[in-house]
Design a protein around this nucleic acid. Sequence first.
DNA 1: CCAAGGCTTTAACTTAACGCAAAACCTAAG
DNA 2: CTTAGGTTTTGCGTTAAGTTAAAGCCTTGG
Lengths: 223, 223
Amino acid sequence: MNLISVFTSHPFFEPLAEHEKAYLARHALVRKLAREEYLATQGDCWPYLFLILEGEIEAVKVSTEGRPLIVTTFVSGDIFWGPAFFEADLPLPISLEANQPTTVVIWSRSTLDPLLAKGGIGWALARLMLRYMLRANVLLERLAFQPVTARLARLLLEHFQSTESPAIPRTLTLDDIAARIGTTREVACRSLYYLADRKIIDVTRTELVLIDRESLIQLAGET
Amino acid sequence: MNLISVFTSHPFFEPLAEHEKAYLARHALVRKLAREEYLATQGDCWPYLFLILEGEIEAVKVSTEGRPLIVTTFVSGDIFWGPAFFEADLPLPISLEANQPTTVVIWSRSTLDPLLAKGGIGWALARLMLRYMLRANVLLERLAFQPVTARLARLLLEHFQSTESPAIPRTLTLDDIAARIGTTREVACRSLYYLADRKIIDVTRTELVLIDRESLIQLAGET
DNA sequence: CCAAGGCTTTAACTTAACGCAAAACCTAAG
DNA sequence: CTTAGGTTTTGCGTTAAGTTAAAGCCTTGG
């Protein structure tokens, strides 16, 4: 397998010796997911750790009324796990859903167990977890303190940042946007046009064009 | 110092050898906090880990407009840390404020460093962090999906659970309640009377009496 | 070319939640 | 006893956000 090359390059596995990496590769479960396919669902007891080789996986929560909220997105190279990986019987607090065709490598708790006893990996896990905790924290802050418009503004800023061009094609549907900022389709749409009305962005059917970055930043609150 | 006895009894330090525990005790910083005193404030770079010996510490976030939100409460025996304990320069996402007279033991990153390299502690930290992440997750879910009344109902249930008696004295001020469920004084008060109006609880100036647990549970949503 | 299905947009309505302000109440200090 | 300061309670006006419904637009597949 050429899987080993992937591990070697990933900083997470750096502390491991060669034969340990080989062990990992032998026991790895490679799984391909289609768009909209679930890796695991909320409430499952899922004692695995995964690494994304290609694609994206969204961590999504669903309310009792069925409204989805995308908590975070894991991209290629990211590592995550189910709580049951650490302690038996802890249910998965979110669903893991592929965004697009995605390939992941999965290890079960029992496979990784012998390696975890060693120092390096435990520490690395703690660091990773810290990162995710901080992400969750940011989300919490926004949901608790910021209105929909501000959350939308921030989402847009992130998208505009990732490209040089001031225009981004409308790849996300309104439902996607709504799930990301924690609201509904309709409200997301209204907010978009609220921004358009004050000449902060330009909304067309095919793209969103940034007009006034300053105002957008201001609307998004601090940072 | 009799500090050592505290460590020995704490499962977190179980993996350590006796001489290591002694090392810990030697380098421990014991700090007493008065009520309302801050251990550290949001935005600080705070590379420490602490253990509560006595008292309580609240993790509180403050919005730009000054509205506080209590994210979680650490009680006697709990261990927590600043993100900078793991990675330099990460700011504290919350403030740590004593709820009551509180005693904590603090270690700096540099002190603990030699012990962290060893496996056991890293793993324990990862497990602890997982717990906190799950807590944050629950809070997120409630803020995102549940109305104020449901959040209040759940808070009350937790309080009623902790005592046998159906009556609890009003030790929390409305501001406290509001900060815990993420709203304002006035709204919290109104919600309280909303519950009283439908005979679910009884509100007097001195105590809250549980009348209809079933309804309260139902209002609180699942669980 | 047409029709179906999905996505977007708008409008009208409803309501939960917030802010302001004032009154009521309680406690502790003088 | 009185007052000052803090807390609780209530009324009122405002608004952000969710809901429902319907219309419009675009793409795709027959």
